[in-house]
Amino acid sequence: MEFPNHHRQIVEDLMSGKFILPQERAFEVLRENEDFYINFFKASFNYDLKVNQDFVYLVSDESNETLSRDICIFIALLSYELDRDGKNFLERIQFSEFEMEEIESYFTNSSYIDLILSNKQLKDVDSRKNFINTLNRRNIIEKTADNRFVFTSAHKFFMDFATDIVKFENAEKE
């Protein structure tokens, strides 16, 4: 049986929890063979493959809830602090590079300091460094140097979640 190009890389990346991004070759292969891969992951592992124009990712019944929650807290805090600082947070997250020093400044001076200190992955400089590496492994950010990074299009996955919170609240009110 013949498999599409980069098949092994695609399976390995998705199974290690990575988001596959438009700038990767694998993304194009996935888009071209979308039906095949949806069936492949469903039949082989009972996983759902989600494909959209910004990223491709896998969903299973078992979710890494802790990591997901910590990522949400991280992006929520960063968005809040950027906005408080008078920045266009969405534009900055979409288009700008961040230095770890800037992140440290926002987190150490945040009014959500209690929440930060109580979170294992975000509580101090070292934890946050490790956390950034985890985000890098998952393709949510891309490290441009040891202490600098940019967000990838996968950040939209979490921004959509924030939008859904408001939609859900509004629907409940109605």
Binding site: C72, I73, I75, A76, L77, S79, Y80, D83, F89, L90, Y112, L115, M159, F161, A162, T163, D164, I165, V166, E169
Partner: peptide, 10 residues
């Protein structure tokens, strides 16, 4: 909308 969602989440 996004910021409002994050503030509710936080």
């Amino acid at each position: 909308t996004i910021l409002s969602g994050w503030i509710t989440f936080l």
